[in-house]
Design a protein around this nucleic acid. Structure first.
Length: 515
DNA sequence: CTGGGGATGGGGCCC
DNA sequence: CGGGCCCCATCCCCA
């Protein structure tokens, strides 16, 4: 909220050097803003989408002015059109704000002291919803509760303390001015404003796009995107991935030097920093943060974040089950349900616990089994290596020939943790560290994890160059040692290999420790 | 604890 | 480039 509202920026400790994100406020009463308007403005702060009930435009305008959300105020005035001009007070405000804006564009950032309308500072910030403690206000639906990056850092690095250069600001200002008429759309439920978190603008589905002002705007859009990801020093700092999207785009931009728009995929989520692959997939991902569910079932009213999920849901009402089992009358809503079901007919259980060698038909059941630490009968049975290879002739087994390296990594962690405890039974450190894990195992875990990462291809490790390089090192070393890289690839066989390696490593380490 | 169905989110492919 | 469609992995819930 501080990122979009001057009022909140001041309220929540934006004082330079203040440091504490809360600013000491625990309760904030906003009775000067109509509840509906405040709700709309909060939604805007989180989602860069402003939904204005047609009856409440004036309230939203006043709320935006009071809270110092300049772009919303501008948009409301734009929507109101001549109405705003006709009212002397509003027109006066508008002139004052334009004057203030022009001062700001010229590099002046002085803030009027004591004024409720703090309209003369930088308008909407590009980075918005970062660790917003809105417990004292009405939180938007399904606002992110947890966040991967620490809150104080996010708050400290709010771009409000690092205003863009005057040139950038001027470009943004011009863009906004030129596009006033096209920046607003009126979808079914109200007006949607494009003006907030600029690096979302190209991604969000219900947001009007910036005005077409080529070629300047084209460059501007890219610059804003870059800014949103990197120039504000927040997102890039938090990830510090040299091969991140922003860097790749920066490199491409520098190399190309042309006007051509670069592909926006993959894109980094500004909230969770996750890299989202695929054109147009970021808006879909963003809805997981905002809780927005624009697709509603007309039959039962259930809402969904995605259209395709709604479509599948509709099958429940239509009775359509398009995935029939060829062996029995069962029909399924999802293809993967049929796939799971087919494993019942085939009897294939390709997912075997490396510890107790219990086999499961489904991978998630194996994972659940492992997470529950329910397999404490260590190696009461030998691996079914031969049996696996024989059984792999079945359709299900054949489908899982290529084991997921991440699965191997996870399984290996599970195995090594468990084995560490059993092999070092009676060792020191009980009660310290995670369950079934000894502190001395941390380094070993790390090493094993890197080995598993080495199984990942560069496409899976593109965002983790350090790990990838180290993984290549390790893999090269192992292959040079004559390990059979083309051995069995069935999931269970792979896991057995890992487990055996773990045992070997543990044995070696024990020998070293004894020495 | 396990088996099974369903829900959710991400990625690939295509238009 | 955005969106639809599909598949996959994972999680949740219930019997």
């Amino acid at each position: 909220m501080a990122a979009v509202s001057l009022y909140f920026r001041r309220l929540f400790g934006a004082e330079e050097g203040g440091g504490e994100g809360g600013g000491g406020f625990s309760v904030c009463q906003l009775d000067c803003v109509a509840p509906d308007a405040l709700d709309a403005l909060l939604e805007f702060a989180y989602t860069a989408t402003l939904t204005i009930p047609s009856s409440g435009m004036r309230d939203v305008l006043r709320g935006a002015q009071l809270l110092g959300i300049q772009c919303v105020a501008d948009a409301c005035r734009d929507i109101l059109g001549e109405t705003a001009q006709a009212e002397g007070e509003t027109a006066e405000e508008q002139r004052a704000q334009h004057t203030a804006t022009e001062r700001m564009v010229g590099g002046e950032s002085r803030v009027e002291r004591g004024s409720r309308r703090k309209t003369d500072k930088k308008k909407v910030k590009k980075v918005g919803s970062h660790h917003i403690n809105s417990s004292v206000l009405n939180p938007p639906p399904a606002s992110p509760v947890s966040h991967p990056s620490p809150a104080p850092d996010s708050l400290r690095s709010l771009p409000s303390t690092q205003p863009p250069s005057p040139e950038q600001e001027e470009l943004r200002f011009k863009s906004r001015q030129n596009g006033d008429s096209s920046a607003i759309r009126k979808p079914g439920r109200g007006a949607t404003l494009n003006g907030g978190l600029l690096h979302w603008l190209h991604e969000r589905p219900h947001i009007a796009h910036p005005p077409p002002v080529p070629p300047l705007n084209d460059k501007l859009s890219e610059d804003e995107d870059m800014e949103g990801f990197g120039d504000d020093g927040m997102l890039m700092e938090s990830t510090s991935l040299p091969t991140s999207v922003a860097d790749r785009r920066a490199v491409a931009s520098a190399a190309g030097g042309g006007r051509k728009r670069k592909s926006q995929t993959p894109q980094q989520c500004p909230v969770c920093q996750k890299i989202i692959h695929g054109a147009g997939k970021l808006p879909r991902h963003m809805r997981t943060h905002t809780g927005e569910k624009p697709f509603q079932c007309t039959a039962c009213g259930v809402r969904f974040t995605r259209n395709d999920k709604l479509k599948i849901h509709m099958r429940k009402h239509t009775g359509e089950r398009p995935y029939p089992c060829p062996h029995c009358p069962a029909r399924f809503l999802h293809s993967y349900d049929l796939k799971n079901h087919l494993s019942l007919h085939s009897g294939a259980r390709p997912f075997e616990c490396p510890l107790c060698h219990k086999a499961f038909a489904r991978e998630d059941h194996l994972q659940r089994h492992r997470k529950g630490h329910s397999c404490l009968e260590l190696r009461t049975r030998r691996p079914r290596r031969g049996a696996e290879l024989g059984e792999d002739g079945s359709e299900e087994g054949g489908g899982r020939e290529q084991s997921n390296p991440l699965e191997a990594l996870s399984l290996q962690a599970h195995s090594s943790a468990f084995l560490s405890r059993t092999m070092l039974d009676g060792g020191s450190g009980s009660g310290v560290g995670p369950p079934l894990m000894f502190p001395s195992d941390v380094e070993r875990e790390r090493s094993l994890a890197l080995q598993a990462l080495a199984q990942l291809g560069p496409h899976r490790l593109a965002g983790y160059p350090e790990l990838f390089l180290r993984g290549l090192e390790l893999r090269g070393g192992r292959e040079a040692e004559g390990e059979d890289p083309g051995g069995t690839h069935s999931p269970a066989a792979q896991r057995d290999r890992w487990a055996d390696e773990v045992e070997e490593e543990i044995g070696e380490q024990e020998a070293e420790e004894e020495e």
